[in-house]
Simulated assay, not measured.
Amino acid sequence: MIPSRSFLSSSWKLKACYATIRRRAFASSSTITPVDLEFDLHAPSGSSTHSNTRKDVGDPLVILHGLFGSKRNWKSLAKAFSRELHRPVYTLDLRNQGSSPHVPGMTYLHMAADVLHFCETHKLKHVSLMGHSMGGKVAMAFALNPALPTSLLSNLIVVDIAPSIGSISDEFMGYIDAMRAIEAEGFKTRKEADALLQKWEKDPSIRAFLLTNFIPGTTHSPHGKFQVPLGTLANAIPEIGSFPYKLGERTWEGNTLFIKGQKSKYINRHNIHTLHDYFPNMELEKLDTGHWVHAEDPHNFRILVANFLNKHSKEYHTS
Rank of each mutant, 00 (worst) to 15 (best):
R87A: 08
H132S: 02
F258A: 12
T212Y: 09
T218N: 10
T53D: 08
E183P: 06
A80Y: 08
R250F: 06
K311R: 15
L116R: 14
P44M: 04
L92R: 03
N310G: 10
H42K: 08
A193P: 08
Q97P: 00
F243C: 03
P298V: 03
L309S: 03
L8C: 14
R54I: 13
P216H: 01
A162K: 09
T121Q: 14
H86T: 07
T318F: 09
S313R: 15
R190P: 01
M282S: 14
T189G: 02
T150S: 13
K286Q: 15
R87E: 02
A141I: 09
A19P: 00
V57M: 10
E171H: 14
Q262V: 15
G135P: 04
P238Q: 10
R190S: 02
A80G: 02
L129R: 03
S264N: 14
H299V: 04
H270P: 02
H122A: 03
Y278D: 11
V159N: 08
S133W: 13
V127P: 02
D203F: 05
L196F: 06
R180G: 02
S10T: 12
F39N: 15
G58Y: 06
I215F: 04
A162H: 05
A208W: 15
L257W: 14
I303G: 03
T53F: 12
R250A: 12
H220P: 00
A295N: 08
S242F: 05
H220T: 08
A295G: 05
F226N: 07
L64D: 03
K125S: 01
A143G: 00
S164V: 01
L210R: 13
H42E: 06
I272C: 11
S29L: 02
F214H: 04
E38L: 05
A80T: 09
H223P: 00
K71D: 02
F279I: 05
E201I: 06
H220I: 07
F301E: 08
P88K: 01
K286D: 07
T212K: 15
F7Q: 13
T91S: 11
Y266E: 06
F142L: 04
S29E: 00
L287Q: 00
Y108W: 04
N300F: 03
D177I: 01
G166V: 06
N155E: 12
F258Q: 04
D93M: 03
L41M: 05
K15S: 12
V228T: 02
T121W: 11
H276G: 10
P244A: 10
S99N: 13
H50K: 11
A306D: 00
A16F: 12
L257Q: 08
S169L: 03
T31I: 09
A195R: 14
D277R: 15
F279A: 04
K314H: 03
Y175H: 07
T251P: 04
I303K: 15
F118L: 11
F68R: 01
Y245R: 11
Y18E: 15
L284K: 12
A143I: 01
H42C: 03
H312I: 05
G217I: 01
R83W: 02
A25Y: 04
P60M: 12
V62A: 00
A193D: 01
I240H: 01
L197R: 05
G166H: 14
T49E: 12
L129C: 00
K15E: 13
P298A: 02
P244E: 07
G46V: 06
